[in-house]
Nucleic acid binder design. Structure first.
Lengths: 240, 240
DNA sequence: CAACAAGCTGCGGGTTTACGCAAGACGGCG
DNA sequence: CGCCGTCTTGCGTAAACCCGCAGCTTGTTG
């Protein structure tokens, strides 16, 4: 068995290397990549079937890399190993995982034992392993209870990108009014409203900007989500 | 000599511990804190004069912690050791460093030797050491060439928080029109404008939202900057 | 001191947002 | 099939936003 490690940080990389060796005696080769771009290339060259991947890397982040890798070989098993469990990451990952693929999401703060188990479960048993903390988010985000619908999330991203209502309408094939309806829903769920709760006309918010900030603070959005969305937007703009 | 290490990540923490021992034979005690809150407390209890601090920690980020520490003992020497050199961080740090204090900003990607030198320069020689990559940003951000004035940055933060023009005017003691003037300047510098460069009325942007996103993508803003700004805003709202 | 650049402010108007009201459209369910 | 909830769309309005024009207050400089 061959394992590919994709991870920015040299310290974490060598830690992972050791962890893989310890957890998987059946593994005879470990390859390392220090960013997403190299990771993709190595995965292709080696036809890697077992990958441990960091999210959040400078050059090309884990989600991007995983997407292209899975596009080429959907049966690849990927363990995401991340510092954070932002809802934006969780949502991003679950949107790209192919049907029936075995994957995992483990936090860097997890114990050695937890990492060991995850490695064996995913790579040997083809099971999915999702950290408890992450799992909670995932359910909240997929189930609609207190979570966001896809359409709400979509419009959140659109205003975050700075599109006007009209532009969103065009992009999503909706009428102006529908876009504004969805915005209303969004404001509602994010609990943003004009006045800061004061008596008379004072601390007012610009709802559209406020919504984006609140989403950021709640980790519904993060840098990498923005980055991806921006790339998609540019693509769409080019394709007119 | 006693050195306090404030750092989230256990791997990085122990790496730092070793690095400090290797670089500073005159150091006889090393204390560790795993987040900003604990860091502040330990700094106070031990009257630490030499601190190595991570920015970006979950519980209380490095800038916050450094600020309160410096407020209590401005002669404390702090070496910031960070993964990133976002302009937001650089700006944040240089805003809190007391006059004449010795501090440093070194990236985690720096070599062992560089870290060693920085440790000795700051803790022994009381010199400031700023990584080259960081230095570049700092000059750009302070000098006005292609950089942002404080007032521009201020208004950027204000719209990022989601305040209306009127609210900003009240908060900053300006007239409505002045606020809008500054916004204009900001849009200009960020190079955001309505049409996406197309011929007729099409891909339009909401300038205010777009500006925030562009700033984010350019690392002028980041999560921690937003977090701080939000806290300040709440403070201001409470103080009416 | 005159001249000039830079920032603050009011006026005015064209556009975009936020949102209530109400009329269809679609899908499930007893 | 009729009832009902959810989603979409149009109309209309008050507020907020973007921004050109022009008069003022400053601080700077020759």
């Amino acid at each position: 068995m061959k394992v590919l490690i994709v991870e920015d940080d040299p310290l974490h990389r060598s830690y992972l290397h050791e962890a893989v060796n310890a957890a998987l005696p059946e593994c005879n080769t470990v390859i390392e990549a220090e960013n997403g771009t190299v990771g993709e290339k190595l995965a292709r060259d080696h036809k890697s079937a077992h990958i441990v991947m960091d999210l959040q890397m400078a050059s090309r982040n884990g989600i991007e890399a995983a997407r292209t890798i899975w596009k080429e070989r959907p049966e690849t098993r990927i363990l995401f190993w991340s510092n954070y469990s932002d809802e934006a990451y969780v949502r991003g990952v679950s949107r790209i995982v192919p049907d029936g693929a075995a994957y995992g999401y483990v936090l860097k703060s997890a114990s050695d034992e937890r990492l060991r188990l995850a490695l064996r479960s995913i790579f040997i048993e083809s099971q999915c392993v999702i950290d408890r903390e992450v799992r909670g988010l995932q359910q909240k985000s997929l189930g609609q209870t207190n979570g966001f619908t896809d359409s709400e999330y979509e419009i959140l991203v659109d205003i975050a990108l700075g599109l006007t209502d009209r532009a969103i309408a065009k992009r999503r094939g909706l009428s102006l009014r529908s876009v504004q309806n969805r915005l209303q829903q969004l404001y509602d769920k994010l609990d943003v409203y004009q006045s800061a709760g004061d008596d008379h006309e004072d601390g007012r918010f610009n709802l559209r900007a406020r919504a984006v900030t609140v989403a950021f603070l709640r980790k519904l959005l993060n840098y990498s989500a923005l980055e991806r969305a921006e790339a998609e937007l540019q693509e769409w703009l080019d394709g007119k």
